[in-house]
Nucleic acid binder design. Sequence first.
DNA 1: GTAGGGTTAG
Length: 569
Amino acid sequence: MVAMYASSGDLHSAFSVFDGITEPSSLLYNSIIRAFTRYGYSKKTLSCFFQMHLLGLGFDQFTFPFVLKSCADLSSVLMGKCVHGQSLRIGLESDIYVGTSLIDMYVKCGDLCSARKLFDKMIIRDVSSWNALIAGYMKEGETRVAEDLFWGMPNRNVVSWTAMISGYSQNGLAGDALNLFDEMLKEDSEVKPNWVTIMSVLPACAHSAALERGRKIHEFSRRIGLDSNSSVQTALVAMYAKCGSLVDARDCFKKIHRSEKNLASWNTMITAYASYGQGMEAVMTFEQMIGAGVQPDYISFIGLLSGCSHSGLTDIGLKYFNCMSTVYNVEPRLEHYACVVDVLGRAGRLMEAKELIDGMPMEPGPSVWGALLAACRSHRNLELAEIAARKVFVLEPENCGNYVLLSNMYAEVGMWKEVDVLRAILKCQGMRKSPGCSWIEINGKAHLFLGGDRSHPQAREIHLLLEALPEKIKAAGYIPDTKFALHDVSEEEKEHNLKTHSEKLAISFGLLNTGPGVTLRVTKNLRICGDCHTAIKFISKIYGREIIVRDVNRFHHFRDGSCSCGDYW
DNA sequence: GTAGGGTTAG
């Protein structure tokens, strides 16, 4: 009875039947523990475990894996050690399932050292024990150690391969993830990818904005019948959105069956709309999610609020922020405050933003003051900018972007002495602004450009095209906006620096190497600059191209002389 | 009946 209810997911009935039994056996306890663990009631699992102990009921090899999983889910190494002790007492530490569960528990609680000790001590190990340890090293960013284990283990199954691929993805090693995936697909390979593998490799495409690669993997998952898996579909939505194709992202989202759309799927779509500046779509998607009976979480609100800020939906954003805890039961976190400061700041309501910060129930972090600082820059409020800057310099001294931002504001009003001071700080702390770079994928191959780069084989053609561009654009009535160039250099020099920004190089390369009418998709590691933004609008008109630029925090979709952001960014 | 890989975030 208990097992029947438990396996159908009806924990309530299972537990009430269980409660009515006067002398439950170990077997019965195991059964209820399994159910609690499977459905995420980790604390209940642990209390059952202690009850068993008090009643003097014996544990067996089936008890421990679930109890340890619950300790792992709770990230409680203390409980874990206590359970570990019990397993030692009855000599089950060396059971292959218990041993692997112990390794996994230590890994998930962040105690890699104990995990390793156990692994080394194990007399019999199987592929799962290795897999658990590999995942642990990947989680800690120790990719080399994970590689040594992976290639050194006696045999590898699909989980081993997937652990490596997802580890590479999570550590930002997209190229390694894709290479290993290719290796796995080779004819003579002993294993075939499953849905978890597909889901783990897609973020690597998203990370490197490799749209063609992503499409191929989508195609592949269709062929092997995995594209109807809702987690794969969610990963596809995220991949297409991050690779610059909102259209494909939306299509994939629509294909997820209504009852299969979970929190992650909705959040992914809301965030996708937000990053494209489609605030209204983000709001509507949020409302549909509520209508579908899915409870939003803090990520839903980050998406919703950032969507509002990116598209100027100031009052709507404020409305949601003000009722998120009362109506939706989600407590605002630091990130939400940062979003709302952004909402107010972009709209130029700087004093309200400052008041909000002053009234915050928690310590405002660097993201909050950073949002205010950025808003002060775009609305030219030096006085408030200095207040915000003083805070972020203390909270985040290593972030050179903040110094550059304030320095640019001083430069704009000709306060060169202050500019020099800030530049001196940057210099003496040995901080360097990370160099701007952009890349574009053509025929499935990524081409990377650094600002001012002349090393590319097609550098001459690219620069010829760029040389000709100002005349074409000026003929269309455009004046280069030099306020985005740094420092007190001469006007001509400024204009030259702007001309060779990496996003312009990548776009010129794209124009040269694709047929007319082909959409160009460029990714940049920093924020797009205002001059490039204006220039690209003209390029889209003059050359009749759609151009999608993904910068560090959002997308710009240029078409026929204007941008999807409506110049609100 | 047991373990190991998991998508969403400015």
